[in-house]
Nucleic acid binder design. Sequence first.
RNA 1: UCCGCAGUAGCUCAAUGGCAGAGCAUUCGGCUGUUAACCGAAGGGUUGUAGGUUCGAGUCCUACCUGCGGAGCCA
Length: 445
Amino acid sequence: MTTHAIASDNHTYINQLSNHAGAEVVLKGWLYNMRSSGKILFPQLRDGTGVVQCVVLKNAISPELWEALKGLGQESSLVIRGTVRADSRAPGGYEIDVIDAEVLQQVHDYPITPKEHGTEFLMDHRHLWLRSRRQHAVLKVRHTVVQAVRNFLDNDGFTLCDSPIFTPAACEGTTTLFEVDYFDGEKAYLTQSGQLYNEATAAAFGKVYCFGPTFRAEKSKTRRHLTEFWMVEPEMAYATLDDVMNLSERMLSYIAAQVLEQRSEELKILERDTSKLESIVPPFPRIHYDDAVKFLHEGFEKGVLESKFEWGGDFGAPDETYISSQFKKPVMVSHYPAAVKAFYMARDPERPELALGVDVLAPEGYGEVIGGGERATSLEFLQEQIALHELPEEAFQWYLDLRRYGSIPHGGFGMGIERCTAWMCGIEHIRETIPFPRMLYRIRP
RNA sequence: UCCGCAGUAGCUCAAUGGCAGAGCAUUCGGCUGUUAACCGAAGGGUUGUAGGUUCGAGUCCUACCUGCGGAGCCA
């Protein structure tokens, strides 16, 4: 087989092998691992769609090729021509009997071996770690989460209206911003949320969403935090808190169903307990902040929680975990004290000290996966709030215009793609759910 | 930023204050059905950095660096 012939052949992907049983195919990929037994080699080939074991018999190929294949290291790139054979001993159900092969590059000393490695080493080699089966599976699930989100919203009448990444000021004013030099000495900030812009586009299109990277310069060092993460934020004109909760519930259920349907192989690799995902179906329990506080007091009395929670505060990670541990499904907690929520939240007319906001807490300790609510509609109220939070009113004039010209009840939420993906996968740390994570002390590779 | 833990071969880890070790990876050899294959051999070290205690420090002390886990904050 000449180089030209093998390189230009139409080739077959490993996940399509079942359509070619008994036929001769050309596979292009990388050596995932190799075992040998005297005059027989078992190279495992990886091509991005899957891994297949090939069988090379010494007396079936040329002596030169045998020598070349025998010495291949992990991640050598090669093209293989062979026959697809169903074999019950093979993990994927099929094996390749090798007829011919071409080695594009012979590799030695690939750093990531089939044995265990530490976190720092793997993160330093993230660009190579992505080739590993488990990382591959996590990112395929991420792909399906994103696809499900977009399909769900598109099919529900939402219009994609992306918000800017450079912003002139904080959306929420409370968290830390990444500052960048714009032109002529002006500062710009990387967006923390498309929320305020969504309210403008919702007034133009009715139901909208934005989807993109967001940035938080929080010095958080936990398994749930990245400094750069992807967020989908739907916003609906003429929507109430109930509408926002209904949408959250439907969207999360749809995502879980899609992941179960499309990523069963990957969930197997990740050893995910799929019954946990199967239980993500409406209705989700909905509890009032006051009731959540009651749970926390019970938890303290039982000795599960270390300190007694004071009404009025926001929940910490152990609090969220305790509340969500009371349920098998995601739980929606609403009517938080306004003091702990963003300035643009609408107030409960019966109890003005409460905000019409909702957090969706995922089970199994994955924490707040969605945060949202109904927005305030009154121009005067928002002006007061902006002053109260010591925000620059001038920067918010365009936003206040939305209350001057056709103000309406409206609401929406934001969902972190990585937190959702970590939850779907059942994995420990959010850093594996994005190809190249950006964290407090890590911006490389 | 605060609290806790760790840093020894390319990787994962051992080593009572007393000779620096193993498995994997690499190189060489053996094996016609291996499943993180196995068997044999070889090479591979300024024990994170700088001081200190001691006859003697990978081990004890101090500072710093790097990483991990957690808190606060948040999706």
